[in-house]
Design a protein around this nucleic acid. Structure first.
Length: 140
RNA sequence: AAAGUUUGACAGACAAUCGCUGGUGGCUUCGCGCCACGAGAGGAAAGUCCGGGCUCCACAGGGCAGGAUGCUGGAUAACGUCCAGUCAGCGCGAGCUGAAGGAUCAGGGCCACAGAAAUGGACCGCCGAUGGCUGCUUAGGCAGAUCAGGCAAGGAUGGAACCGUGGUGUAAGAGACCACGAGGAGCACUGGUGACUUUGCUCCUGGUAAACCCCAUUUGGAGCAAGACCGAGGAGGACGCAGGCGCAAGCCAGCCCUAGCCCGGGGUGCGUUCGGGUUGGUCGCUUGAGCCGUAUAGCAAUGUACGGCCUAGAAAGAUGAUUGUCGCUUCAGUUCGUGGGAGGAUCGCUUCGGCUAUCCGUUAUGACCACUUGAAGUACAGAACCCGGCUUACGGCAAGCUUUCCGG
RNA sequence: UGGGGAUUAGCCAAGCGGUAAGGCAACGGACUUUGACUCCGUCAUCCAAGGUUCGAAUCCUUGAUCCCCAG
């Protein structure tokens, strides 16, 4: 992915984690927040050390970035988003992983043409009052 | 053929499309934009167990303490690494393993339980020659008990019992003495640069130093988030104490730093407390104890000479994804085809040599094997300043050697 | 990436070469009409493997897991 499309600073990550909204299925979690300045979307990928060694985590990050790159035209602009990889995503082949990522992004309302989720409001909802539960039941 | 052992090289290949990070060149609306060319993970990149380079700590200094290493000779920038040997142990063998100095030239310490005793001692036991006691006495002695005392052979304990076996000797005994043997030390001698070794003489005999310790060698500390530069930013305040000499500059003391202590050195008003700012960029950064080839010295590790080559450099962290074709392994299926083909497939037991059972085939209407077809799988693992090792994880391949069996 | 530290019963833990204290929990028993309290008993491959030693939780080597620190 191009460097402009990546989320790069530690502060950006902290802001998205603290003030952004989150959605999930059993393979991925997404946090997003509308950017304060106009521009393209920016994305970061997080793969924790519980998933495996450096080889496994690098491969997952590369696959996620490749999928988002190929589907970049479908994504809304002016967004910062973080994709977190969960353990069941380890064994997915490419096609299923693409479907799962598109599913979770559509659920979060980040795809063009979808009207679910918050429509551009910079929201800081209290934790107990989120619109979708995120127990990961839908991914199976 | 099977089992084993050592060494070596490799780490799936190719193509198309779409991407990522540096480099070079060009274009440019000068914006980390566009185009072209070329480059882009490992044998362990890992663990961080050692060693070195490099940087800072004023100089990187001295002594002590502390740490590390520990057969010999060599290699190396250095090492706890490597090579060649010595000795000891394991293995039928090829080979493998060894923190392998010192316990008589230091010194003490420890050896639980058991046992008399764990290097200073006698429970049972043996003796009672000598001195004493009792009895008898022909007055020379004789006998008895074991009071003093002598001994450590035998028993029992233990991981280990004073070097072992046999004899001489004695009252009983003992390396007290002798023969043979085990181990160690010293001296001389043979061979070797040396560890060591051959032979002889003399002396000695519990273990433990990965317990303290002694001896020899060696060792300053921290680590690229080291460090250097540029830019941005900010804020200092309160309380307490401020010794001696000198006109003064200053010196001494005090305090801080120099990883522990002393010396030496450097800095400085000191201590306590409440606060403030910085999370940007460039360099360090990949030409190096570098790689490849040839020759040469050496048993080898390795060195020397000549020629050629430039081979990753990220920073929420590049080196990838998809598709197709092929390679390798395993399983299944097919007799349609091609090739080989007289014995073979499967189960069980095994001392791994074989044995037994069932089924198919036996000169072919041909069992079975290979190719052809399909499915699944295709190891361990990702540079983060750089090198030399060690250790751990892991896939198949090749070659040498050893043992056993079969055939000629 | 670099530098430190820890691992003993289900939990908290003592131990510094001589055969693993203690507390909570769990289980069994006693006491009680029953329960609580109390008393007695049971429960350990000392993270793993190898070595030194007569003997290792302890000493040494190698690995595994977890935690902490940094400009």
């Amino acid at each position: 992915m191009h460097r402009k499309l990546r989320l790069r600073k530690r502060e950006d990550f902290n802001v998205v984690y603290r003030y952004g909204r989150s959605f999930a299925n059993s393979q991925f979690v997404v946090y997003w927040r509308k950017r304060s300045q106009r521009g393209t979307f920016r994305m970061g990928v997080s793969a924790s050390s519980k998933l495996g060694g450096a080889v496994v985590r690098n491969r997952l990050r590369r696959m996620v970035k490749e999928i988002v790159r190929l589907n970049a035209s479908k994504l809304l602009e002016d967004m910062d988003l973080i994709l977190i990889v969960r353990k069941p995503a380890l064994s997915l082949p490419y096609k299923e992983m693409e479907g799962s990522i598109l599913h979770v992004l559509r659920k979060a309302g980040l795809l063009k043409g979808s009207n679910q989720g918050a429509k551009g409001k910079i929201t800081t909802l209290p934790r107990g009052n989120r619109p979708n539960n995120q127990n990961g039941k839908q991914g199976k």
